Amino acid sequence: MRALVLEAYGEPLVLESIDPPEPAPHGAVIDVDACGICRSDWHAWQGHGEWADDQVPLGQVLGHEPAGTVVKVGDQVSEIQVGDRVAVPFNLGDGTCPQCRNGHGNVCDDGYALGFEADAPGAFAEQVHVPHADFNAVSLPDGVSAEDVAALGCRYVTAFHALSHRAEVQGGDWVAVHGCGGLGLAGVQIASALGASVVAVDVREEPLDMATDLGADVTVDATEVDDVPAEIRHRTNGGADVSVDALGRAETCRNSVECLATRGTHVQLGLTTEAEKGEVSLPIDAMTRWDVDFLGSRGMPPSRYDELLTMMASGRLDPAALVTKRVSLDAVSDRLGAMSEYETAGFEVVTEF
């Protein structure tokens, strides 16, 4: 089968013919109908993560936002069947550890990261293997397409889990979103759907316009104000109740913390770059003084996908509205390169394999 392989960091991925996967006894193989292209793929392609012992190995098939149709199952699989249309979370659990048993499979003690480690080849390929398929593969309701689910990817589900489950955003809250790439725009749409008022922050006109279309009440161009946190506190009459760093730079992380109202909650979603190497200084004394929470969030438990899929089926959420480009497998390297200069907007999805 055709697959894109990471042969050298920062160099174009190599389109190779490799053996198709066979299912483990607990696994399933799906034909990939669509797969999102994510900034996390860009981090992997750049070789980031060495500072956290999390660098993706060379020889890896990247791609971690797939949806498709089951074509083979292992002999221990009882729930997922050949012909099922499924979504595949990137944060794969084993279904048996204490975290999985308590509904937190996104942080499984013995889990896999699809597309980021040798034991879990990714979905920039014609087929992908899903381990522990009865636990991880999520059946799709009628009316939800593979492209819709590829738009969910890791970005949309991460934003949904962060805002709905971790920060528990409610109607009437002010939510600030720092960085309006795909992850940030997902946060804008979700926060609005949850009943919050939203401030979207970026340095580019196009994503700020998209944020407005997706439900942002206020936009802030960070190149046009001297003090982003002060601007947000002014526009929200005291500060955001919840603020999200969707970019992962030291500046956006600090801005997110400093724009909060008393007893506000910061949620860190963006991964840091080589400049930060996983470390950001924060105003700890002020956070303590004003009872500020700092949360991390990663993916979403497979057991909670139904909440999101139900909102999609009812039309309350529309991740496909964030899709700005549909490309073929051999165009992925160019699209990753465009991310280096922040030349992408919204979600880009592979639909031709």
Rank of each mutant, 00 (worst) to 15 (best):
V56S: 04
A118F: 07
G111I: 02
S197I: 07
H43Q: 09
F90A: 09
P89S: 08
L308K: 00
A159D: 13
P20D: 10
V14F: 01
T219M: 06
E22Y: 05
G181P: 09
E224P: 00
A167M: 08
V128K: 05
L260E: 05
S333M: 06
E205Y: 05
A44C: 13
Q76A: 14
R101D: 11
V86C: 06
E276M: 03
M1C: 08
E117M: 14
F160G: 04
P66W: 05
P23D: 07
D245S: 10
A176W: 03
F294T: 14
R263G: 04
A67L: 05
G103T: 08
S192G: 15
R289W: 10
T158L: 10
R155A: 09
D41Y: 01
V218G: 01
G215Q: 10
Y342T: 01
G215E: 06
L271F: 08
S340P: 00
P283S: 09
V323W: 00
V220S: 02
G215C: 09
L92A: 04
L6A: 04
P121M: 03
L208V: 06
N255T: 12
S17I: 06
H64E: 09
K325H: 15
T288G: 12
H266S: 12
V5E: 03
S333Q: 05
A275N: 13
E251K: 03
L322R: 10
D109M: 11
D31F: 03
S139E: 15
M312K: 03
S139A: 15
A118C: 05
I284F: 15
N91P: 02
P66M: 07
E341I: 04
F294V: 15
Q189C: 02
G36R: 03
A44H: 02
P229G: 02
T223S: 10
F347L: 11
H234V: 08
L4F: 04
A52H: 08
G47K: 00
I80A: 04
L336T: 00
E168T: 11
N237R: 14
Q170D: 14
